[in-house]
């Protein structure tokens, strides 16, 4: 690991300034992803700016019903919070389906959004990878693709975003609050992560020096009736093969409102807008759920090692919607 300077940010503006002044500096959250990467040689910053003591550690309900989650709120706290458990159960479930207790005690909301892919070639500096070293090639194509994308990939990169939390936030229409050198901006979560295209090295639209300060959740009544279902090889402490975050509001057999996002299948949390469109206003029947799933997955392109994901995701989505419809 390359030696680095460690410093604690005094305040948000100073943290931003520190990065603006140094192109090789990075923010440090819980460190559970960044420090791994430093140890593996995937990242080699010369300066890490610890932002965990900045005062973004609260979960607040705003007057208009929105909920504001501070960037430094730890994953374990967020999952356990009463507001989240009652108003956005899918988010709480997604967090608890991710990582381990120790990791969630350290991992921050911002860090979780910003975590990088678990693609085995990305994490192994002895193999080519366009995301780690643009232009070197994508080793996953033609290699081990069990945990790779079936939606929205490019010939340059087929990696997936590993976060469970972000999948739920995507379904919940969350917005990311960001402080940059020229002030604050809000980015819808669905636009926060990118598809790889020909720039797989860029995971998100965040610019160097921009600091995440919070994530806002809209009031969204449908979210109270939601779940997160994650399919994985090991029953706990494993990344998703596929996952589904879904919220459903059924009135008199008709779907009044619905939110769906997928994890483990794309370079970003995959908001299933086509499926949502089909379902809104239709009957809550297994046939409609299947039709919605098939429509959304019509664009799926798999690799030899992950073709199973299409069926697995379809089945998981249908089962999740049936569970929500049944319990309504």
């Amino acid at each position: 690991m390359k030696p680095f300077v460690y410093e604690r940010a005094r305040d948000a503006a100073q943290a931003v300034a520190a990065l603006v002044a140094d192109p090789d500096a990075v923010f440090l959250g819980g460190g559970t992803n960044l420090v791994d990467h430093m140890r593996l040689g995937v990242a080699s910053p010369d300066r890490v700016v610890d932002v965990t003591r900045l005062p973004f550690d609260r979960i607040e309900q705003l007057a208009d019903g929105r909920v504001c989650i501070g960037a430094n709120v730890r994953n374990s706290e967020l999952a356990a919070h009463r507001l989240i458990r009652t108003r956005y159960p899918m988010l709480s479930q997604a967090l608890l389906a991710g990582a381990s207790g120790q990791l969630r005690n350290m991992a921050t909301t911002a860090g979780n959004l910003m975590q990088r892919t678990r693609c085995v070639y990305f994490q192994n500096v002895t193999t080519p990878c366009n995301k780690r070293q643009p232009g070197s090639g994508c080793s996953a194509i033609g290699g081990y693709t069990r945990y790779h994308a079936i939606l929205g990939a490019s010939e340059h990169c087929i990696a997936v975003h590993p976060s469970d939390m972000a999948v739920a936030m995507s379904a919940l229409d969350a917005r990311v609050v960001v402080l940059g050198p020229s002030g604050e901006r809000r980015i819808p979560l669905v636009d926060f992560h990118r598809l790889p295209g020909d720039e797989p090295e860029r995971d998100t639209v965040l610019r160097h020096g921009e600091l995440i300060t919070a994530v806002e959740l809209p009031a969204l009544p449908v979210a109270a009736h939601s779940l997160y279902r994650k399919v994985r090889d090991r029953r706990s402490f494993a990344f998703a093969l596929v996952s589904v975050a879904a919220a459903l509001d059924v009135r008199g057999g008709t779907i009044a409102d619905v939110r769906i996002a997928f994890g483990g299948v794309a370079h970003k949390p995959w908001r299933a807008t086509r499926a949502e469109e089909i379902l809104r206003g239709t009957d809550a029947t297994p046939e409609q759920f299947e039709r919605a799933a098939d429509t959304e997955l019509a664009a799926a392109r798999s690799q030899p090692g992950n073709a199973f994901k299409v069926k697995m995701l379809r089945n998981t989505l249908v089962a999740a919607l049936q569970e929500l419809a049944g319990a309504a």
Binding site: Y121, D233, R234, R235
Partner: peptide, 29 residues
């Protein structure tokens, strides 16, 4: 149910070479 050291013959490397990728049974299992 779980254990699989995936050899990528192109590199002669086991690519699932850590505990996040090489799953061993844990409490829940």
């Amino acid at each position: 149910l779980l254990e699989h050291s995936v050899m990528d013959a192109r590199f002669g490397e086991v690519v699932t070479h850590d505990f996040a990728e090489y799953h061993v049974a844990a409490h829940a299992d």
